[in-house]
Amino acid sequence: MKRHKKTGPNYNRYGWAFIAMAFLLYLLFTIYPAVESLALAFQSMEGGKYTFVGLKNFKRMFGDAVFLQSLKNTFLYMVIQVPIMLMLALILAVLLNSRFLKWKGFFRTSIFLPCVTSLVAYSILFKMMFSLDGIINQVLMRLGILEQPFQFLQNSTWARAVIIIAMLWRWTGYNVIFYLSALQNIPKETFEAAKVDGANAAQTLFRVTIPQLKPIVLLTAIMSTNGTLQLFDETMNITQGGPANSTLTVSHYIYNQSFVYAPNFGYASAISYMVVFLMIILAIIQFSVAGKEG
């Protein structure tokens, strides 16, 4: 039978062929473990054996002061650190994209550099920098801002601030990469048009640049939110969650429940799924906010 040229081969099937490899690996190594751990969330281990306990693990969360504290901390990081970081990244990207800038390569590379450091390594560095005889205290004392060294990591507010500063250092440049590449894809004519219309720099940023960057801003916002909810290495290595659990994050608490305390994988799984649930809600909010503005 003669084939109609226009129908052609079954492209849908080709599509699946492209996806097949990733899909297979994904089913095997993400979905299956995720489902198994979801089942764990309804179990509790006693004497080396798991028993079904229904919703007990979920109920326990609401009475668990440490968990609630960790949730509060995590949201605090999210509300403060993510916007500052994204704004800073955007400003840096715009500046780095400036046609008046000399030694572009040097500036770009230097600003991107922090994001290559391993989390363990940079956490150790930051802990040492903010210690009592660390460089930060030395500089502040030399400048006359402080009379005697300040214990940053022992004051709950400042300990959080140090975590946030550390994260800003590590992740801002990373987001700059995304913004810069997106900026370079905005046609130059758009900016020129704005200039002709007499817009100043700030107006151009908010009326032209940011709207153009909306998809990438959304992407980085979701990524950062996601990252914050999974924040672990920094608090683990810089403050160990202290003082008085004031820097403890949910992921850190999950880790503690699984590996530091008597292993309670059931409860840890339940908390993990609570995090998943929260992330989905946040993503929906972010998408709808972005949708409305457009």
Partner: peptide, 13 residues
């Protein structure tokens, strides 16, 4: 009482 931030702070002090 000197409150060191960490084990390395303690050793350093």
């Amino acid at each position: 009482l000197y409150e060191a931030e960490s084990t390395e702070g303690r050793a350093g002090a």
